[in-house]
Amino acid sequence: MRKLFVFVMLFAVWLVLSGHFDPLHLAFGLVCSALVAQCSSKLLLAEVPAPHLPAAAWGAVRFLPWLLYEIFLANLHVVYLVCRPDRLRPQIVRFRTHLRGDVAKVVLGNAITLTPGTITLDIVGDEFIVHAVSDVSAASLQTGEMERRIGRALRQPAGAPPDGSGV
C-alpha cells in the first residue's frame, strides 16, 4: 500500500520531468519508480500509517491554500517593516507543541518560518524556540491555529494523549 502510493507519486514526477511519452521512456520511468519504491518507500512519510496516506495527501492539498494566504499576509507584514524598521520588536518565544512525529513537526516548523514574522530557531523534543519579529507576530503564534490545521491535515487528533492513534 505504502509502496504503491510512493510509486504513483514518483511516476507522476517522472512523467512531468521527462516530457517524453514514448514506450521506451515510459518503461524507464516505470522501472526506476518501482525500484526506488521497492528499496526506500520506508523513508518517505514513515510516520503516517499506510491506510491514511491518501487522506493525508488530500489534507495537505486542502492545507496549502490557507498556508499560501498566510504567507501572503506575512509578506505584507515584512514589507511594512521594511518601510518602518522602527516598528521592529524582535523577541524569542518558546512554546510546546502536541503534534507528534517528525513529519508533523517539520511541517509546523516550516509553516512557522513562512508565516507572520516568525522563524523557527530550534526544536528540542516538543519545544519550539521561535524568533518573532514584532509583538503582533508573537501574539499570532499563541493561538495555535496552525498546529490545529496541521494536525487535521495529517490526521492527528488535536490535544490527544501522546500514545494516540495518529502515529
Binding site: A74, I119, L121
Partner: peptide, 9 residues
C-alpha cells in the same frame, strides 16, 4: 535574525 525574516519570507 530579522534579516532572515526578510530573506526567508
Amino acid at each position: 535574525y530579522t534579516r532572515m525574516h526578510a530573506a526567508g519570507k
